[in-house]
């Protein structure tokens, strides 16, 4: 922000960065969409690469993946699709039940546990110009009720059709407990990054996830570092450790996370 006033400049430069160890990446997101059976679930396995590597991320095939509901001992085996994804069609989601993930890869066993977390419905979606960061640009607003008697954490995923990536927000009810929570999504008018503000006709997918406190701690940091890593006014960047433990060799831990959430999915088209 100060940049505007102080003639500062930003340019892309070449930087030599160190290369860390290659690790397994587990993206195991058991997301139960409200109003569906939630029986189709997917786990993605890949590996990390050097930071400036431009080749496609290497996918992991040949691993064995299963999830156990520790409350019911039901077991769900995920089938290797040979493209880095592992699928099941028989998953049974239960709010408040605890699930355990087990991945066996290269003779090492990774495990993680999560309790499935519920989410409130979205009360209302609106569009406005006056709100947001810029009172001349369109933004969309979502409203949902935060339950008062517990600590709640949310992840919101916005994705505009045609974009390369989604945009994420993490929300804790620490200062908002028991209130109707308002979140907004506005796009800058930034030619350098090719970002254009919303126009009537643009469609945005909205996913609101109810997440656990531990996943909130993970994703909050991931989001902060993704959007402002290296910025002098953000906290010092650090390795983000997920919840997947290598039971065989704990130094060879995996990146990524095993989450179990309830999600509200909807979309909005600007008028």
């Amino acid at each position: 922000m100060l940049a505007v006033v102080f003639m500062s400049c930003e340019d892309v430069i070449d930087v030599d960065v160190p290369t860390g160890q290659t690790r397994l990446v587990i993206e195991a997101s058991l997301d139960w969409e409200k109003g569906t059976s939630g029986s189709n679930q997917q786990v993605k396995l890949s590996t990390s690469t050097p930071y400036f590597e431009t080749e496609a991320i290497p996918v992991v095939v040949g691993a064995s993946v299963k999830v156990v509901n520790t409350n019911t001992n039901e077991e769900f085996v995920f089938v290797d699709q040979n493209d880095g994804t592992y699928l099941t069609t028989t998953f049974v989601p239960v709010i408040g039940n605890t699930y355990q993930l087990e991945v066996i890869y290269n003779d090492e066993t990774y495990t993680a546990t999560q309790t499935m977390t519920s989410v409130s419905d979205i009360n209302n979606i609106t569009q406005s110009i006056e709100g947001g960061f810029d009172d001349e640009l369109l933004e969309l607003n979502i409203y949902f009720d935060d339950p008062e008697d517990e600590a709640n954490y949310y992840l919101v995923r916005y994705y505009e059709d045609g974009d390369l990536f989604p945009y994420f927000e993490d929300i804790s009810d620490e200062f908002l407990n028991g209130n109707e929570i308002h979140d907004f999504f506005e796009k800058d008018d930034d030619e350098d990054s090719g970002q254009a503000p919303f126009q009537p006709g643009d469609t945005v997918e909205i996913n609101l996830y109810g997440i656990s406190e531990s996943y909130y701690n993970y994703i909050r940091l991931l989001i902060e570092q993704y959007y402002s890593g290296g910025d002098p006014f953000s906290s010092t960047s650090a390795e983000i450790r997920g919840n997947c433990i290598n039971e065989t060799n704990d130094d060879n831990y995996a990146y990524g996370y095993f989450r179990a959430t309830e999600v509200v999915k909807t979309s909005y088209t600007f008028q």
């Binding site: 690790r23 890949s46 690469t49 930071y51 590597e53 991931l222 570092q225 960047s237 390795e239």
Partner: peptide, 16 residues
Amino acid sequence: YPNGQYNYEGLSVATF
């Protein structure tokens, strides 16, 4: 500085 990247939720996430 980052010492690697991985793909998560469709984003390239840095490791440090």
